[in-house]
């Protein structure tokens, strides 16, 4: 499980960084979205990777059958904030496209 999550974070993060370094707003925003997903996965796994357990303390619970609820709460907040930021970036990119007439990051074609 750890290996799977770790490689997922690596692949998502790597693709995200590659896309962020492109010169068109669409690919960059796509890259930022992938990067955000990678980061959220990373945050979630920071508590401990323990599939199948609930973050609830009950009578007679063994500590091994318990996951930390805090990273889950943190990830939830991070997802919400990330979504808001992403939608702002999309709207900004579209507006910039209309105003400047190009989707190049610098607002003008360089070639």
């Amino acid at each position: 499980m750890e290996a799977l999550i770790a490689s997922a974070i690596a692949v998502l993060g790597g693709s995200g960084i590659y896309l962020v370094l492109r010169a068109r707003t669409f690919t960059v925003i796509l890259g930022l979205a992938l990067l955000a997903i990678a980061v959220n996965l990373f945050l979630l796994s920071m508590g401990r990777v323990a599939p199948g357990h609930a973050p609830v303390i009950e009578e007679g619970l063994e500590l091994g059958a318990y996951v930390d609820p805090l990273p889950q709460a943190v990830v939830l907040t991070a997802i919400v904030i990330g979504f808001a930021m992403m939608s702002f970036a999309v709207v900004l990119a579209i507006t910039a496209h209309f105003v400047t007439g190009t989707d190049h990051l610098d607002g003008e074609e360089t070639s």
Partner: peptide, 27 residues
């Protein structure tokens, strides 16, 4: 708008890094 696109993208990447740092320190 031109400056805004750069600024927003740079800071979104910065926020991702911030979360990684928070996750590491919490871990």
């Amino acid at each position: 708008l031109k400056a805004g696109v750069h600024y927003v993208i740079l800071n979104l990447a910065g926020s991702a890094l911030f979360l990684v740092a928070i996750g590491t320190l919490y871990g």
